[in-house]
């Protein structure tokens, strides 16, 4: 597992969801977590802070998770930040687009700490 002090940005328009993800991350030992409620805010935060990992929801107003991903990948500075996209079972097909846009992995909600841990270990191999 990567450094527990890794700075993580959780993006979701629903604050309860952000809290859930944050709690799960905390269970896994990651405490340096910030939140953003949509893609615009996320990009602003990313550009102003040294984030090492982004967990974003797919379905958000203003800017979808996919667009956020595309924006990150198109940004000189941010392009290498690993992105994990959260999707609903019914929208799993979206993953194809996300994969093409360069997402590192996806996770289907609801997920448990173990599943997230497995995803993170894969994204950050030792």
């Amino acid at each position: 597992m990567p450094n527990p002090n890794m700075k993580i940005l959780v993006v979701d328009d629903f604050s309860t969801m952000r809290r859930i993800v944050r709690n799960i991350l905390k269970q896994l030992g990651f405490t340096n977590v910030e939140e953003a409620e949509d893609g615009d805010v996320a990009l602003e935060k990313l550009r102003n802070g040294s984030f090492e990992f982004v967990i974003t929801d797919w379905n958000m107003p203003n800017m979808t998770g996919l667009d956020l991903l595309k924006n990150i990948r198109a940004d000189e500075v941010l392009r290498d930040i690993p992105v994990l996209i959260v999707t609903a079972e019914a929208e799993k097909e979206n993953v194809v687009q996300a994969a093409q846009a360069g997402v590192n992995d996806y996770i289907v909600k609801p997920f448990t700490a173990d599943v997230l841990k497995a995803k993170i270990s894969r994204i950050f191999p030792d």
Binding site: D13, F14, T16, M17, I20, D57, N59, M60, P61, A88, K109, P110
Partner: peptide
């Protein structure tokens, strides 16, 4: 879409809880 998204989001979070 806006209404859809609300239900969608509620479903997602409710699943966790």
């Amino acid at each position: 879409n806006a209404v859809f998204r609300v239900f969608h989001t509620i479903k997602g979070a409710a699943g966790f809880l």
